[in-house]
């Protein structure tokens, strides 16, 4: 059975129908490239998976459970993480707090008052995560806004990986990065695959997609029009699907 299974997912905004019954499956540890022209519905599709958008029709099951009616917090609990293109970091909060945002571990203050954020635990585990990813960040006590684009991308990935996700969705993770930083992100994706974490990579950079993904799904006008194995296709074929020129 697949890890993630979408069947007949439809979504409209007012009179505009963006998704026309999308079917998609992702297996554990699989890396999928989701490509398509601007306006094809990639972002909308991903937001229906994370629960930021509710679906009008269709069913989304994840890890054997129907998650269609669950909210974003609950889906995150069940193991779906998304890294947004704008990274969705809080610039004035420090690195460690950003990584644990929304999931702060607490203890009792002086053994009495409940709900006291365990800052030393946050700092220790955040540092551990950063070290594991093998990326250099000057200090976990710095506000995230003071870091470079590549470092911020790393923080966003660290946040996604800290709570042992089963599926990570990445929206254009390499678009704003320098060449060396792109390599380190693609390496991280491979590392995640080896740990059994599934990834959906949304990208306009087909080079990156071909390098990292085993399967490539093309979205066009809210429909999946191609689902190709990387080893059985080439860039020309994918491009022709994207622009709608394929037979």
């Amino acid at each position: 059975m697949s890890l993630l299974e979408l069947s007949g997912v439809e979504k409209s905004f007012g009179p505009v129908q963006v998704l026309h019954g999308v079917n998609l499956t992702v297996d554990a540890g699989e890396v999928i490239g989701l490509v398509g022209d601007n306006g094809a519905g990639k972002s909308t599709l991903m937001k229906t998976i994370t629960g930021v958008y509710t679906t009008d029709k269709g069913r989304i099951s994840f890890d054997g459970a129907d998650v269609t009616g669950r909210n974003p917090g609950e889906r995150r609990e069940s193991g779906i993480e998304m890294i947004y293109q704008d990274l969705a970091l809080a610039p004035q909060q420090d690195v460690a707090n950003n990584i644990f945002l929304g999931r702060e571990p607490t203890k009792r203050f002086l053994g009495l008052l409940p709900g006291f954020v365990d800052k030393s635990k946050i700092d220790a585990e955040a540092q551990h995560m950063i070290d594991r990813l093998g990326v250099h960040v000057p200090s976990i006590h710095l506000p995230v806004g003071m870091l470079s684009g590549g470092q911020q991308q790393t923080i966003a990935i660290a946040r996604a990986l800290t709570f042992k996700p089963k599926l990570v969705i990445m929206d254009e993770p390499t678009a704003a990065l320098a060449v060396r930083e792109v390599e380190s992100v693609l390496n991280l994706i491979r590392q995640m695959r080896d740990e059994g974490i599934a990834t959906i990579l949304i990208s306009h950079r087909l080079n990156d997609v071909f390098e990292a993904c085993g399967r490539i799904v093309v979205l066009r006008r809210g429909n999946v029009i191609a689902d190709l194995k990387r080893d059985e296709t080439d860039m020309a074929e994918v491009v022709s699907y994207i622009v709608g020129a394929h037979g």
Partner: peptide
């Protein structure tokens, strides 16, 4: 002070003021 500086509620308050998208993306209501 306890609530704003040392509870998850306080952390979420500052994150919400910092970047609403960040708060939403991490599942904060």
């Amino acid at each position: 002070h306890y609530v704003l500086a040392h509870t998850p509620f306080g952390h979420h308050t500052l994150a919400l003021g910092d970047n609403e998208n960040s708060a939403r993306a991490t599942g904060i209501n």
